[in-house]
Computed example of a mutant assay.
Amino acid sequence: MALTVSRLLFMRKKELDKLSNKFDENVFDATKKFEKLITNKKEIEGLPATALGLAAQTAVSKGHENATLENGPWMITLDAPSFNSIVRHAQNRALREEIYHAYVTRASSGDTNNSLIIDQILKLRLEQAKLLGYNNYAEVSMAMKMATVDKAEELLEKLRSASWDAAVQDMEDLKHFAKSQGAKEYDDLRPWDIAFWSGRLRESKYDISVEELRPYFSLPNVMEGLFNLARTLFEIEIEAADGLAPVWNSDVRFYCVKDSSGNPIAYFYFDPYSRPSEKRGGAWMDGVVGRSRVMSRDGASARLPIAHIVCNQTPPVGNKPSLMTFREVETVFHEFGHALQHMLTKQDESLVAGIRGIETDATELPSKFMENWCYHRQVCLELFLIEL
């Protein structure tokens, strides 16, 4: 009987892995497939220069060789930098709605329809849970985590009850502001309106826009500030090591991490920019190889860990460096926190070194720790001073 259950579990896992891969492929293909060429600048009024430059650069890559920031044409995609610029800045409400709908309905029709795949994944997950003696897949997921289903639901309810009144008030403030600006939709704000009007309200309150901060958050500045922080906190030095290892794209950088004595202790790849034609959305970190004495070449010193950090931030436009939003800065700090846990381990058994063998919710602790430094006054000041 035990052998039969084990066999069934293996088959379910194999099917789930296959379905999950197909789900991701469909989302990627649907995202890549969408393109909207705009030739009339009035249609994209409100977009900042960085967004227009990126849209023109994308148009050039799609065969519109004469596209320029000023005169277009401009290519809009569902890649994060392009999508976010539209829903946050485009004054054209119909365009915001079109792009929003295209984004949230990706892989829901045609050859990339994920609907049946979702149904099958849910069915197999429930079967898997029952075979393991659990009531549902949530309990299976929590079995190897610090939290429990009950505690997670309790926390969600605490957050909901504590934030509800403030959220309602925020929405009322947003409606009032939209009305004061003559917006016809003020009493019926939809999902494609929230980011746009929230940005305008924030600008009116603080007399500064998110876009005005971008020059202070150029990628070289951010990385210098991040490495300075790592030096202060962990007494490590991070140096560029381009050419020491092969890379999969010319934008990818390779770095060496050294201890206070100058000895290499780890390496990592950093792939920062979005590439809609070959790269799925989001940001992630994972291990290339883990620290291991068994797998070392000489059997004496441990094999050093190597990580990769992959993001999808705004790419450079022309000869300018990547100018990041604050959220993109947060993302880099977050993923670097994951990488630090992988790279700074002193455990020589690779199966439990770094991020291996740790509850998946526990792995978010170092990433959130690093991310929260973005809000630290001294760290922010240093980033600004690097630019100034």
Rank of each mutant, 00 (worst) to 15 (best):
V149T: 02
A230K: 08
F234I: 01
L131F: 11
A230F: 14
E212Y: 10
V168S: 00
T232W: 12
A266H: 12
S209T: 09
Q169P: 00
W197K: 06
L131Y: 13
K184W: 08
G182S: 05
D187L: 06
R160L: 06
K179L: 06
V252Q: 10
M142F: 08
N263M: 07
L131C: 11
I236V: 14
D150K: 07
S163F: 11
M146L: 13
E153P: 01
V247D: 01
E212G: 11
L226Q: 06
D193E: 11
K158Y: 11
A241M: 09
S209N: 02
Y267V: 04
P246D: 05
D193I: 06
N221I: 06
E172P: 05
W248R: 12
F177A: 04
S209Y: 04
P264C: 07
V140Q: 04
I238Q: 07
E224L: 12
K145V: 05
S260H: 11
P246W: 02
W192M: 07
M223V: 15
R253N: 03
L132G: 02
L189I: 06
F227M: 02
V149P: 02
R253Y: 02
Y206E: 00
L132D: 04
S209A: 04
H176G: 05
A240L: 07
W197H: 11
K179P: 05
I208W: 00
G262L: 07
A166Q: 07
G262P: 10
D173W: 10
A178M: 09
V149G: 01
A143S: 15
K130M: 06
E239S: 12
S198Y: 03
E235Y: 15
N228C: 03
M146I: 09
S218I: 07
F227Q: 04
S250G: 15
N136V: 03
L233N: 12
P215G: 06
S161W: 04
T232R: 14
G182E: 04
P215A: 07
R202G: 06
E211C: 03
R202Q: 04
S209D: 04
F254D: 02
C256P: 00
S161Y: 05
Y206Q: 01
G133Q: 08
G225N: 07
E224A: 13
H176Q: 13
D251H: 06
V257N: 09
A166K: 05
A230L: 14
M146Y: 14
D173F: 11
L201V: 00
S161K: 07
D187H: 09
N136C: 07
K205W: 05
A166E: 09
K184L: 10
F227W: 11
L229F: 15
F234K: 08
V168I: 04
N135T: 05
Y134E: 06
D150V: 03
A240Y: 04
M144Y: 12
Y186H: 14
K145C: 12
R190D: 12
I265Y: 14
A147D: 15
K184Y: 09
D259K: 09
E139I: 09
S218R: 13
E139F: 13
M171V: 02
